[in-house]
Write a protein that binds this DNA or RNA. Structure first.
Ligand code: FES
Ligand code: FES
Lengths: 148, 148
DNA sequence: TAATAAAAAGACCTAAATATCTTTTATTAT
DNA sequence: ATAATAAAAGATATTTAGGTCTTTTTATTA
């Protein structure tokens, strides 16, 4: 449903949100190692997020990525839109060219419930919501060591 | 979420279920034209379904594909399993290597609701259920002509 | 039994997503 | 100023999904 680029983006943002501070920026190397994501591929993704002002970066020694408190309030759907676009949430689950109430596929009514539910979930969840779960120890953004 | 192969398979099966009879088998050509699916690609998919005994076929003049009433009782999840596998329903929505209750990602609890809901939807829906919707005129399996 | 029709099978092609490698640019510290 | 560091940018490679083309096999019917 979400592309790899997109989940890499989300996890990287959460990692940055959790680990950066006024004095500490986070390098791609560290993110890639911690989250086990491919360095250069991740770098492209982070560039896009910077361009869209979701995160910020500085070059040079002690440079890296960071995120402001305001930016942490953006919802996840926004990230999905930037990376994948929102077509998933409009598309027919059975691949008809149009998903519509007047010409529905035989899964339309049932499928719509979940598709729209996910949409609203992603709409109301912010980056900060995810970061808090990490900080409270209620969730994790890295793999379990044994699964490495 | 579902691959094109998979939704092509589902729509083709429903089309066959709706149109075939004891005396009439359905050719790939007809299915491809009606559903606007690529002929040869569709042919590969139907071959797999025949191998898995979801549909049946005969070669030669007046040959084609057909489906038995019993086979119409198989659920959609079975088709998804044959074409895509079921990994989607076990995978972490944020791409962690394992989706688990003890090491959850920050979306786990919310995401699981939809992922499991879809699972159960596909588990309880049979091909016959979809065909009935077509026959009752409550749903469609072809695109609207203007979207062709 | 020959011609024909249709699926099966196999080889091949294309496009998109994912991943890597190299060079450039900006920043900081010496 | 210079060297070192880190992101940005650009080029290239690999993998996978999606799609096409050709040949073979099987069944029908004239
Ligand atoms: S028409 Fe298929 S999901 Fe809406
Ligand atoms: S751990 Fe991410 S969905 Fe279960």
């Amino acid at each position: 449903m979400l592309s790899k680029s997109c989940v890499y983006a989300l996890r990287a943002i959460v990692y940055i949100g959790h680990n950066c501070s006024d004095t500490k920026k986070i390098g791609i190397k560290e993110i890639g190692e911690e989250l086990e994501l491919p360095f250069h591929f991740l770098s492209k993704i982070l560039q896009r997020l910077v361009k869209h002002h979701i995160i910020q970066s500085t070059k040079g020694p002690h440079g890296g990525f960071y995120i402001s408190e305001e930016a942490k309030q953006v919802n996840i759907l926004r990230i999905i839109d930037i990376i994948d676009g929102l077509s998933f949430f409009e598309k027919c689950g059975l691949g008809l060219k149009e998903c519509s109430e007047t010409h529905p596929c035989p899964l339309h009514n049932d499928f719509k419930v979940f598709r729209d539910g996910l949409y609203h979930l992603f709409l109301k969840k912010t980056i900060a919501d995810l970061v808090i779960k990490i900080e409270d120890g209620n969730a994790f953004i890295s793999n379990l060591p044994q699964n490495k």
